[in-house]
Design a protein around this nucleic acid. Structure first.
Lengths: 135, 135
DNA sequence: TCATACTGTAATAAAATATGTTACAAATGT
DNA sequence: ACATTTGTAACATATTTTATTACAGTATGA
């Protein structure tokens, strides 16, 4: 779950990009966002799965970026943390005998696909370096 | 509340646009989306507030469009039903002593504003007539 | 080699949000 | 009058998100 995944992940990566040579602990990262370290570690697990970061266990352990912030863009993060932006669906199996009910979710999906393309296009122009540079 | 507001509202309007001269009951509308009529009436209340539809109480009452479907576009509906598309925020008052924590939500907001502009641009090109025509 | 400081992850709990229901007053057509 | 419909508030339930606890495993260095 975690619906603030994108925000949390971007926050984590922003901090990591500020200290690219250090292993930052989940405790430290959690401190910046006032969040439980376990949630941080869960998001880090996701980042590791995508080879964006690596972690070191044990004392003085922590997490650091696996590639320069310049080579990560916000769409990469979006894709790793967000299924899809939607404006909602008809969730109760709409009436199959109604031509609208029968197809509404497909049509909404087509619409949302377009929206997601626009979002990806926009986000892909922003590198982590650029975002991180705002702080 | 209601986060499926956009989808429900678009569904309602699609049906209304199919029968522009009739007053459709919340019972009938609810039947197409397999939803409780009270939820429909709640969304209709919102549509009325924005002068998109009118309702008639009492026997044979119901709701109908106040203007032609051609003059309603999906961005109108988006604006009436969706605060703002976001990819989440840092919700626990991030640490004000951390330069990132202190500003993260503002920066996310700027990003989301851009995204919302793109969405609005996209949605404003689609009229209710066009959407409704897919069914 | 042992205490310490970490990560990893599962299980559980709590909180927040969304959805659904009931109930009933008020309006309108027949 | 009566049946049918909207309008709303209050309440109940379900779902999803977020937070916590617990503890096993791993590296460091005194």
């Amino acid at each position: 779950m975690i619906s603030g995944k994108f925000a949390i992940t971007l926050h984590i990566l922003t901090l990591l990009s500020k200290f690219p040579d250090e292993y930052l602990s989940s405790e430290f990262l959690a401190g910046s966002m006032n969040l439980h370290p376990v949630l941080i570690r869960k998001e880090i697990a996701n980042l590791k799965k995508h080879n964006i970061v690596e972690s070191k266990e044990g004392k003085n352990g922590g997490t650091r970026l696996l590639r320069p912030a310049e080579k990560i863009n916000l769409d990469d993060i979006f894709k790793m943390t967000f299924e899809k932006v939607t404006l909602g669906y008809s969730k109760n199996d709409p009436n199959p005998d109604c031509p609208v009910g029968k197809n509404i979710n497909n049509k909404l999906d087509e619409l949302y696909d377009e929206i997601n393309k626009k979002i990806s296009t926009e986000l892909s122009t922003i590198s982590l370096t650029e975002f991180s540079g705002k702080f």
